[in-house]
């Protein structure tokens, strides 16, 4: 899953800070159908990782697709992946192709 996306890239974000530190916009039934990163906060786990970029569109989180998910559902999936104690990282499948 996701591997058919020609320009997609798997990025592992270690939970190195208390917050993930990204802002997202978009979701099903909006002009931006998949969540797009609009801000990366300095000092957050995403910033510390150094690979997530503003403009990345998030296709999957820990293998769960965000396709068809409305904004709040997508945000909840990301928040719960970061909160879950079973893993010390979150895997994002992202693309720069919008």
């Amino acid at each position: 899953p996701g591997l058919l996306e020609p320009t997609s890239c798997l990025i592992r974000v270690a939970k190195s800070a208390p917050t993930l530190g990204i802002a997202i916009e978009g979701g099903a039934n909006t002009r931006q159908p998949l969540p797009r990163i609009v801000t990366i906060q300095r000092g957050g786990s995403a910033h510390n990782c150094g690979k997530l970029k503003v403009g990345h569109v998030i296709l999957e989180v820990n293998g769960t697709t965000l396709r068809g998910k409305e904004h709040r559902a997508a945000a909840r999936i990301i928040a719960e992946a970061f909160k879950a104690k079973e893993k010390d990282h979150v895997d994002f499948l992202v693309t720069e192709f919008n």
Binding site: E25, G26, N29, T30, Q41, H71, R72, F82
Partner: peptide, 15 residues
């Protein structure tokens, strides 16, 4: 393109 224009903008959530 016309369809895009009819879709609403999204809210932004900080995570």
């Amino acid at each position: 393109r016309e369809k895009r224009l009819t879709l609403p903008p999204s809210e932004i959530t900080l995570l």
